[in-house]
């Protein structure tokens, strides 16, 4: 785990410190029309001409720096963001808080819906309910966030198309659009009207995906001999589903939900860009787009740590839900 984290950070460090990136950094910090010699001397002055392991060691904080001694990531010194002209840690903390709200709402919408839909569909495989839910979930699982976001905005937040003009003309809404097409207002105050679309956009894809897995797992469990045993004991459908099937059927989806978090991060990046919500994803795009090496490194470390943590968590959850794997 720690090894993985180190490997990954080294990889990111290497990729962000490739010569063309550094050259671009020099030009953006100095002037765009620097000659090659000037670039070289700028890099030398800033210390970027030293070997990569040394730089990495300094960044990590295991090697001393000329100015401040051991001051790297491990000491909490994440460097200075060139775009925001602020310490990286401050930028990341602020954006993480914003994204936290988004994730919270997404989870609150997505998880119960997905589990309920999946369990309902898998309960009676092949029934009409199952087919309807299946097609619906395949549809949403086939719709990436940048598509559903665009479609949702066109439908609900466009002044010229979709529902809003109709509602406006009918006098049902005061505003020109039903929902707001951006979520920048949500940075200060979250309302249903500015937050519903971003949350729905992320949740749609995940709901479909998780519901598919829940359904498959539920259908498999319902075909197990112990469900027949319960039925032949004289238990009714409700009892069979709630007492016997659900717990066994939830092992797979819960693991998946946790593994799904990194993918959620993707959705977050897309949605925050689409709806101009200044969270973690938006910051990542800013950092990468503007060659803000320190910030990009910081974002990467946070993202990768998040992924590794969810992997460990999903392992734990799997163990907790599966009595076979519990020790003793």
């Amino acid at each position: 785990m720690l090894g993985t984290a180190l490997c990954l950070s080294l990889l990111v460090f290497w990729l962000t410190h490739l010569p063309p990136n550094l050259e671009k950094l020099a030009k953006s910090q100095g002037s765009a029309r620097m000659s090659d010699a000037e670039v070289a001397s700028w890099l030398e002055r800033s210390g970027f001409d030293r070997p990569l392991p040394v730089l990495y060691g300094e960044w990590l904080g295991v090697l001393p720096r000329a100015d401040c001694g051991h001051c790297g990531v491990m000491q909490g010194e994440w460097g200075q963001s060139t775009v925001f002209r602020q310490p990286v840690s401050a930028v990341i903390l602020r954006s993480l808080a914003a994204t936290g709200w988004l994730m919270l709402w997404v989870m609150a919408v997505m998880v119960p819906t997905a589990l309920a839909l999946g369990a309902l569909a898998g309960m009676r495989e092949g029934s009409r309910t199952d087919r309807t839910i299946s097609v619906a979930t395949i549809l949403t699982a086939a719709t990436p966030e940048y598509v559903s976001g665009v479609v949702l905005v066109a439908l609900f937040a466009s002044a010229t198309a979709g529902l809003s003009p109709l509602l406006h003309e009918a006098g049902w809404i005061e505003r020109r659009t039903l929902f707001q097409g951006t979520a920048s207002g949500a940075m200060t105050r979250i309302t249903f009207w500015n937050f519903a679309l971003p949350v729905a956009t992320i949740a749609l894809y995940g709901t479909g995906y998780i519901a598919r897995i829940t359904r498959a797992s539920m259908a498999e469990v319902m075909a197990q001999p112990y469900i027949r045993t319960a039925r032949l004991k004289g238990a009714g459908l409700a009892r069979i589903v709630l007492v016997h099937a659900l717990r066994n059927a939830l092992v797979a989806p819960v693991t998946v939900i946790l593994l799904q978090l990194p993918w959620l991060l993707n959705g977050v990046v897309i949605v925050e860009t689409l709806f101009a919500y200044k969270g973690f994803g938006w910051t990542l795009v800013q950092a990468a787009g503007n060659n803000d090496i320190a910030l990009l490194l910081g974002c990467s470390v946070v993202a990768v740590t998040l992924v590794l943590a969810t992997q460990a968590l999903s392992d734990l959850a799997y163990r907790a839900l599966n009595p076979r794997l519990r020790v003793g």
Binding site: L8, L15, L18, P20, P262, A288, N291, C299, A303, V307
Partner: peptide, 17 residues
């Protein structure tokens, strides 16, 4: 797999790379 896809793209698919 531990890289979020978008981060990977931003690291790998740039004009500099």
């Amino acid at each position: 797999l531990a890289f979020p896809v978008i981060l990977l793209f931003y690291l790998l698919v740039t004009p500099e790379i």
